[in-house]
Amino acid sequence: MDSAALLLPQLFNGLSVASLYLLAAVGLALSFGLMRVINMAHGEMLMLGGYLAWLTLMVVPGGFGIIAALPVAFLGTAAIGALVHMGLIRRLADRPLDTLLATWGLSLILQQAARDLFGPIGVEVRAPDWLSGSFTLAGVVIPSARLLIIVMTILVLGGIAALLDRTRVGLDIRAVNQDRMMASATGINVRAVELIVFCVGSGVAGVAGVLLALLGPVTPNAGQVYIVPAFLVVVMGGLGSLTGTSVAALILGLFTALAQIFVDVSIAQMLMLVLVILFLQVRPQGVVAVRSRALDV
């Protein structure tokens, strides 16, 4: 098959990869934008989301178990995020390097715990029949699982945008993001807002973990594969901007998928790093320059 015939399916693949990058990165971007915290254990929320999907399918084995797994994974990883925030992040406030090391340690602990609990090989989340097939649209074969990933990403992003734009909590989040001191002086409980953001970010990563499980086995280090691109997306997006994060995820997702037409996967990953380095040379502030930690939608 020549390159041109591969282009459309790869574009579609790229969109689904971009979606996963985005879901993995959005929590990082939100918590970095708000707290200037780099959470090295964020990838493990993806991994936990995957295992939660597997556990949910044992309880709800039918065709819609995977749909049930989405809220389970969201709530489960959000709850774990709450523990991480209260037990670790909050106690290390204003100590970014310590936070980095502590969350890295947590990441190793969670990986080892998963290895001990579920075994080193990993578990398989079997996509239900309605998701394991594919259909043809305008001559392009579209795998249903990948379409679900894209649709879910749009829904999640829309949900976050609505949360930020239309709710009181969203207003509080934006106020804290723009001026933490003034937000507390207007009566906003800054720590509670941070906790909410951290939980939502972790929950979204858990949802990403469920979707990831549709594409391959869930292993103890499943999160590691996506966390590096997720960090790249956050940096390239402009550290904390939702629009920037989305654009950067699209660029990197499409780039790796299209590069794979010509080179193998590992070379494509390497080229992605080169692309990010070159991009930051030209535009060090990222896609969207965030002035005074603006969380624009």
Binding site: L171, D172, R174, Q178, G187, I188
Partner: peptide
């Protein structure tokens, strides 16, 4: 708050 509207700035004050 620079990126909140006038109305949103005033609404933020209701938190107290």
């Amino acid at each position: 708050f620079p990126f909140l509207t006038v109305e949103e700035n005033l609404l933020s004050g209701l938190a107290a």
